[in-house]
Amino acid sequence: MVDVSQHELVPEHIPIEGAELDSVLEEYGLDRTDLPEIKANDPALPEEAETGDVIKIVRDSRTADTSISYRLVVE
C-alpha cells in the first residue's frame, strides 16, 4: 500500500483539540464550521481523525517558510 503522507505534495496533517483548538478559533474569531473543509474519506487524513475534528495542516509555503492552515473534517 502506498503511504500517501510520504508524497511531496502532501503536507503534514495533525489533528488538534482542546485548548489548542480553542485558542486558534479565538485568534481568528471563528466558529469551527467556518473553517475550510476536508472530507472524512480523504486519503491524507490520519487514521484517528473523525468527522467534526479539526486538522492542522503545516504546508511548505511558497511565500513563507511554513504556513499553517486548518480544516474541519466533514462527511
Binding site: V2, V4, H7, D42, P43
Partner: peptide, 10 residues
C-alpha cells in the same frame, strides 16, 4: 483521489 485535497491544492 489518491493524495487528498491538500495535494490537489498544491
Amino acid at each position: 483521489e489518491e493524495l487528498g485535497i491538500e495535494a490537489a491544492r498544491e
